[in-house]
């Protein structure tokens, strides 16, 4: 009886410690985001940002565009087989465009971005930590949050929305290739149905807002995991995995919340 009670007490204590650990980690991550995102732009900062844009954005372009093309083609193919049963294959353009703009482009681009750029950011910053580059920067009197983290954060914030636009454009084109060129949907109705149902502010705009939110979350997780990891080879590999897992979960979870707010009629 007494042993039982102390056992329960120990469990509750453990739970409490886990909770406070989690809160502490969140607090540290928040402080980290605040301190690094707010930095005065300088000529040097501009150059560093440019470098990271290349690394994070331009180099992710290929995988994002190829995926977008295939996803557009698949929606078109799948959508056609469903719509043709109702004699509504003219609505194919609408279906392709809306599912891409509202849902697939922001989400899939963010997931690909987490895998391609996020994990690389974590590993790179982690390696800089493990080889004491961050420490030595501090000792030289340069804040690594500004010098190393800020350009990467901002590059991520800007890159992902651009990649998402690219994903949508290529996807719509892929849908057109399959639907119109291959399956023979009338070209005029593909575009006009699309234009009639898509509104710029609601669909394109909301998709962009989603993408921006995902950009902040994914990049934040990636650089924080890199900055906060245990500087050993095992620590780096764990943090890289954590980046991909946490980012993916965060993107999918937030997507539900954002969709509910934007399109759920709330």
């Amino acid at each position: 009886m007494d042993a039982n009670f102390s056992d329960i007490l120990a469990r509750v204590t453990r739970l409490g410690r886990k909770g406070s650990d989690l809160l502490e980690a969140l607090g540290r991550a928040g402080l980290f985001l605040g301190q690094s995102a707010i930095s005065v732009p300088s000529r040097e900062g501009w150059r560093l940002w440019m470098q990271q844009m290349h690394f994070v954005g331009v180099l992710s372009l290929a995988i994002v565009l190829v995926s977008g093309l295939f996803i557009g083609m698949v929606i078109s193919l799948q959508g056609y087989t469903i719509l043709v049963e109702f004699g509504a294959e003219e609505a194919l353009g609408q279906m392709v465009a809306l599912s891409l703009l509202r849902e697939l482009a922001p989400v899939v681009a963010a997931l690909l971005f987490a895998g391609r750029a996020g994990s690389a950011l974590t590993a790179e910053i982690g390696l800089m930590k493990a080889t004491e580059q961050l420490s030595s920067m501090e000792m030289i009197g340069v804040d690594p949050l500004r010098r190393v983290v800020a350009p990467r954060l901002w590059a991520g914030f800007v890159s992902l929305p651009i990649l998402t636009v690219g994903f949508s454009v290529v996807g719509v084109w892929g849908g057109y290739l399959v639907g119109v060129q291959w399956l023979g949907v009338f070209e005029g109705s593909y575009w006009s149905n699309m234009q009639a149902s898509v509104t710029f502010l609601n669909d394109v705009g909301n998709g962009m807002v989603k993408s921006l939110v995902f950009a902040v979350v994914v990049t934040w997780i990636a650089v924080f995991q890199g900055y906060d990891l245990v500087p050993t080879s095992e620590g780096i590999s764990r943090a890289t995995t954590r980046t991909v897992v946490y980012s993916s979960l965060a993107v999918l979870g937030l997507d539900f919340v954002l969709t509910a707010v934007m399109f759920g009629g709330l």
Partner: peptide, 10 residues
């Protein structure tokens, strides 16, 4: 400060 690993910026 001279770090153990050198800590040069790679």
């Amino acid at each position: 400060m001279l770090f153990q690993s050198g800590a040069l910026f790679s």
